[in-house]
Design a protein around this nucleic acid. Sequence first.
DNA 1: GAAGCCATTCACA
DNA 2: TGTGAATGGCTTC
Length: 192
Amino acid sequence: MSATYFKPKKLDIYILIRLKNGKSERDGVILDEIRFFWKESEILSYIEENDIENLNNKSLKDQGVVSDLVHLINDYLSGKKINLYDNIKKINMDLGFKEKFRTEFSQKVMNIVSQLKHGEVTSYSDIGNELNSKAFRAIGSVLKKNPIPLIIPCHRVLGKNGMGGFMGKTKIGEEINLKKNLLEIEGVMEYK
DNA sequence: GAAGCCATTCACA
DNA sequence: TGTGAATGGCTTC
C-alpha cells in the first residue's frame, strides 16, 4: 500500500491517491482510493489513522503510472475534455472494479455511471429506469461508497430536483460545492 | 434473517 | 414549499 497527494492547480483542495500492487507479478498497479481534503493537516492525520505507509513511496513498481495519473487529473481539472475513466486504462492502471463492487447491483450502477461522458449528467431515477428498478435510494447508497470519485464520475449524477448529495453528504457544504465546481469545470449549467 | 439505514422520488395539501 | 409515505438494496447485528 502506498499513497501520494498533490494540490491541483485549479482547485483549492488536496487530492490523496492510494495505490496498491496487484496480486501477481504480472498485475499492474491498482488504484485503491481517491480522496479529497481541504487542509493538508487532515491528510496527515488520515494517513496516520489508516496506517498508510510509504507516502510518496519510490519503490512502487511503476512510479511513472502515478505521475501519469496526476497529469491526467490536472489536465481534467484544467478544463480539458478528457474522460478519466477511459484514459486511466491507457496508462496501465487497474481499478480493481470487481473487488470494490461485489454485488451485481452495485456493479451495474457503477458501469452505467462510468459510461457517462464529459459534461453529461443523469439522475438517480434515470439510472433506476435503466436497471428496471425503483431503488433510487439504493443507487445513492452505492454511489456513496465510490472510493474513486473523478474516475467513476459520480458527480455527474444529480437528483431530479437539484444537486443531490456528494461524498456522503446531502446538505450544502464543502463537499457539495466541490461537486458544483466539478460540474462547472465540465461546463454543465443545467443544475440548480 | 430482520431491522434500520440511505447521495431519492412523488403525491398531496 | 413542506411533509410524509413508498421504495429496494445494503450493512450491521
